[in-house]
Design a protein around this nucleic acid. Sequence first.
DNA 1: CGAAGCACGTATCACCGATATCAGGAGATG
DNA 2: CATCTCCTGATATCGGTGATACGTGCTTCG
Lengths: 222, 222
Amino acid sequence: MLDAAERLLAASTDYDISTRAVCEAVGVTQPVLYRIFGDKQGLLDAVADAGMERYAAQKAALEKTGDPIADLTAGWDDHMAFARDHPALYQLMFTPRPESGAATYRRVLDLLEATLVRCAAVGALTTDPANAARLILAANVGVALSQIARPRLFSDPRLSHEARDAVFAAVLTEPSPRGQADPVRAAARQLRSQLALSGTTALEDAEAALLDRWLDRIAAEP
Amino acid sequence: MLDAAERLLAASTDYDISTRAVCEAVGVTQPVLYRIFGDKQGLLDAVADAGMERYAAQKAALEKTGDPIADLTAGWDDHMAFARDHPALYQLMFTPRPESGAATYRRVLDLLEATLVRCAAVGALTTDPANAARLILAANVGVALSQIARPRLFSDPRLSHEARDAVFAAVLTEPSPRGQADPVRAAARQLRSQLALSGTTALEDAEAALLDRWLDRIAAEP
DNA sequence: CGAAGCACGTATCACCGATATCAGGAGATG
DNA sequence: CATCTCCTGATATCGGTGATACGTGCTTCG
């Protein structure tokens, strides 16, 4: 029944389901749903909890490295992947629903905090794990929800990586492995933005266009 | 009518309103609502748009400093205050609703980007304003929505300030090179030196040579 | 074997989004 | 001034949804 509800939720266009449709998909009538879950909110909570279970399992299968910072980075990307793969379920879990969803936030925070405690154990954390977990989760949810809301504007994976590196840099002592490690790319990006907003006359239009393409290539270099 | 809808939305417990209640509050019947807004979604879009108008006005009344970075900081805090004061309206504006809300995101991004362009004009930005705007807005929305969802966990203003500083540190330069004459020339010089000491493979030799001549011209520009 | 308890279905209520249809009034046109 | 047209609003209604009271048949245990 939870499976049917989640399937209908994923298939729905307005991120909403009807208890009738869920019951019909399973082959029972409405009162059994209300006997089991008591409420539609109860059903949605159970669906969110099942999603949380899968999220935790996915994350548990991921964290096997000895390096806690690598695990933390993988955790962020995994969070983004989960949001991308299950947008309706993700929104059900992390969007502000009144009187609900508390368990999801709490459990994700606990998972995150566990990893952060490991980071603190190796002296890589500049604040307490609880505070860092709140910061990371809030930013992660924001990027994920923005990506769900406006894929055209926010689906660029570079955005997620930049946000991740920015937040990690604020709570970790060591610079993150991939974050702004390449000064060439940073310089190329800065020059491109500066050229874009100050109409320089040192280059002709064709030259500027070609330069822009090169800077783009440099900035996108792996 | 928009006023009644927003009032009912703020008073509702489940962040939802009924078209009947809105009509009854105004004193008209349902068909007039559907004549005016065409749809319930149209009504909600109009409410979100009115909220966006108020948000823009509040922000316009705020940005008066000559320092764009101070304005950017105030903009973040103002965003958080708006979310705290109008949680239902805020969620209507920034939560992923299908087929809607595009205008809100776009307009907020434009406002943010305008301030960021001013930051870039004084050489305080390390990336292009569009990218920085996406990053800042996503993080800001994430902290705000988390605060709405779980006030007990995320209402600490220190969290918002930490997130703000973390994101700003990722897109802003340190205010040390204040007396920078020309940010374009500085960026060109920096890129040239960076390219010289790190053999990048993104460009062929001939391209790198031509790029070097152009950077020289830009750096030598009066 | 019989009765109690429970699970399920039937029928129904109140509410909501949306619309077809009709009544009344403002303004144009002769 | 009469009439026609267009616009605005109300009435009535339809399909659907969350939720529940009540009856019925099956299971289970003494």
